[in-house]
């Protein structure tokens, strides 16, 4: 049911972990739904230098989290804001239809982390 890319990212997730002095942290989902994604960003000169994630959820939830971290490293904040859930799913060669809504939230978590970063800057 999952593409090879999804299984690869599930089996060998990229950038798992936390950043203790993160520039921004974003979390979506809740344990009741069965999915929580948390993204940590390290931003320098408006560029995302480092990104880590922690995810509780199904194979698609883990794979999309891993994929979004790969997509975002080295991007500017504005570029990162343009990444959509759809783009993450496409980068994984698609997700099963049932997973498109419930487990495809990694870009949302990323955007929340950016929001958190911006709030801290304004802060």
């Amino acid at each position: 049911m999952y593409s090879e890319k999804v299984m690869d990212h599930f089996q060998n997730p990229r950038n798992v972990g936390e950043i203790t002095d993160a520039s921004g942290v974003g979390e979506v989902g809740n344990p009741t739904c069965g999915d929580i994604m948390r993204i940590y960003l390290k931003v320098e000169d408006n560029v995302i230098k480092e990104v880590k994630f922690k995810t509780f959820g199904c194979g698609a939830a883990v794979a999309t989290s891993s994929m979004v971290t790969e997509m975002v490293i080295g991007k500017t904040i504005d570029e990162a804001l343009k990444i959509t859930n759809q783009a993450v799913a496409e980068a994984l060669d698609g997700l099963p239809p049932a997973k498109m809504h419930c487990s495809n939230l990694a870009a949302d978590a990323l955007h929340k982390a950016i929001e958190d970063y911006k709030n801290k800057l304004a802060g």
Binding site: F10, Q11, C33, D35, F56, C58, A61, V62, C102, S103
Partner: peptide, 30 residues
Amino acid sequence: HFIEGESLLLSLDMKGIAASSGSACTSGSL
């Protein structure tokens, strides 16, 4: 506790073990 059933099933399947879960993620419902 702290983990989700479908991830567990996929991981077991990679080790060649077939099982099932009561997680929503394996049933197609919420």
